[in-house]
Every structure is written in C-alpha cells, then in structure tokens.
C-alpha cells in the first residue's frame, strides 16, 4: 500500500480545558494513483486527519507512512489544496506557483518553465503576471491547484477545495481535476461535504462517523470500463452513502438539541439543485 494510515488517534484540548478525542483508531490504506474521498459530518475530524497526513500536525498515537516513509513533517511530496486558495496576495500568480520550487532551490528559469506548463494545464496562461486580487474565486483555486501540481507531488491532499465556489465553476473544475488526475497519475485524497462530488470524482468513498471521528464504512464507486457510468448506478451509490450518513447526522443533532429532537428524514431528500447531501 502506498499511503498507510495506521491506528491514528488525536485529541485536542477544548475551550473548557477538557480533552476531546477527535480521531480514534483510524486505519486506512490508499493505493498509488487512486482517488479517495472522505465524507462525514461537520467536525468529525476530516481536516485533522488531512493535516496529519500533510505533516502539519502530530498524532497522539499511530503512524502514517507514504511509500514506506514515516510522515513527521510537511514535505513537497505531500501538498495541500485548502478550501480557500490561500494565495499570497503580495506575489503574482507566477511567483505564487514557483514559491515551493524556489524553496527547493530550483533555478529560477527552470521553475518558471515548469510553472508556465502547469498554469497552461489549468487554463491560466493569460494571468501569469496578475495579482490574486485581480482573479475570480475559481481562478484563484486553479492557481492554488497549479501551485500544488508544480511540485509533482506523490499525493495531492484536498480539503473541500471546491466548496466555496459556485456550481458552474465547480463543474468545470471537476472536469479539469479528473483530466489532471488521469494525466499525472497523482494520488488524490479528497475531503468534501458533497456526496455527489465524492461519487462523481473518486474511486472510493470513505464515510466517517463522529465523536470520536472514525471510519464507518468504505464504499467503492462502481465505474464502467468506458468511463461512462449510468446515472442509476451513481444514484444508487449516493443513496447508500447518504443512508449511512443519516445515522451519524441524527446522532449529532440529538446531542446538540436534546433527545426530544426527532429527525426529519424528508429534509434530506434530493433537492432540485442535485447537490445531494451537501448540507451535511
């Protein structure tokens, strides 16, 4: 296995100085070149797990290995795309994209050539010398994806990268991401709130349970050999994930609102927008 997450446990101290266990007994194996999504109720520890894989935080117990190497700190082979693009506003698009390369002591000219290549891949060649404040939200997120890809990472960690974007932009970026994934064969670890997005993009959906956060079920997403999956199959998978999540959401709401809360199932029916489950 390529990415090996083994017995991870993580607690935080909350505002009341109490120890809160956020992740418990997380075991997960991800194959090289695969596309894995994580879905789960808000606050179940998805981002926490991603930061652990990124090396931005340390677990209390357990270990994470990539290609056999223990993760102890951030590294250019594991880069993160955050929900907000997080571009440095004082740098141009090009300078943002070359930031990590220059840090790796790559000569400026080589870095520039590479950056221009990836910027072309995300269709931003015309904005190389623009500043982030001149770009739209979708363009910013493209730059942040380019900044990650230019490092030629082994694993691309994405924490709800499209959730701040409008529906149209999101659809375009879905297509672009899938193209990039096929072209570069990078392993993608993708967190989302949107079940439809998870099913559409990934090969496997990991469903999280909450309090403490743990893996409830791993659902494979069926794909046809020709790459076109019939809607009925996709819908079926979505339904399955949704029903697993419903139990979890119900649990959360009960804890928050008291036992007299009765879960209103019809709230979870598919809306017209079709982004089923994006409210979790």
């Amino acid at each position: 296995m390529y990415l090996r997450i083994d017995g991870i446990e993580k607690s935080f101290i909350d505002d009341r100085k109490e120890n809160v266990k956020v992740l418990e007994g997380i075991n997960l194996n991800v194959k090289k070149g695969s596309f894995v999504s994580i879905v789960g109720p808000s606050g179940c520890g998805k981002s926490t797990l991603l930061y652990l894989v990124a090396g931005l935080d340390k677990s209390d117990r357990g270990e994470i290995r990539v290609d056999g190497n223990l993760v102890t700190k951030p590294g250019p082979e594991r880069v993160v795309v955050f929900q907000e693009a997080g571009l440095f506003p004082w740098l141009t698009v090009l300078e943002n994209v070359t930031y990590g390369l220059i840090l790796k002591k790559m000569p400026k000219e080589v870095a520039k050539t590479k950056a221009l290549d990836v910027l072309k891949m995300v269709h931003l060649s015309r904005y190389v010398n623009s500043y982030p404040h001149e770009l739209s939200g979708g363009m910013k997120q493209r730059v942040s994806i380019a900044r990650a890809l230019v490092m030629e990472p082994d694993i691309l960690l994405m924490d709800e990268p499209f959730s701040a974007l409008d529906e149209q932009t999101r659809m375009v970026l879905h297509k672009e991401l899938l193209e990039i994934w096929r072209k570069t064969k990078v392993t993608i670890f993708f967190i989302t709130h949107n079940i439809r997005e998870a099913v559409l993009l990934s090969e496997e959906v990991v469903v999280f349970a909450t309090r403490p956060g743990r893996i409830k079920e791993i659902i494979p997403v069926p794909t046809m050999k020709d790459g076109v999956t019939p809607d009925s199959v996709t819908l079926n998978t979505e339904q399955r994930i949704l029903s697993i999540l419903q139990d979890e959401i119900e649990k959360v709401l009960k804890e928050e609102m008291g036992d007299d809360y009765s879960f209103k199932t019809d709230h979870l029916h598919r809306g017209d927008s079709g982004d089923m489950g994006s409210h979790i």
Partner: peptide
C-alpha cells in the same frame, strides 16, 4: 492559512519570517 501554506511548501525559520 498563509502559515499553513508556507509550511506545506517547506518554508521555516527566517525564510518563513521574510516571505510570509
């Protein structure tokens, strides 16, 4: 967010101070 981004790309110490 900026601090996390910088760390992901390997910035630390004086470089982190100067560039972020």
């Amino acid at each position: 967010l900026y601090q996390r981004v910088a760390k992901v790309y390997g910035s630390s110490g004086f470089h982190f101070l100067r560039t972020v």
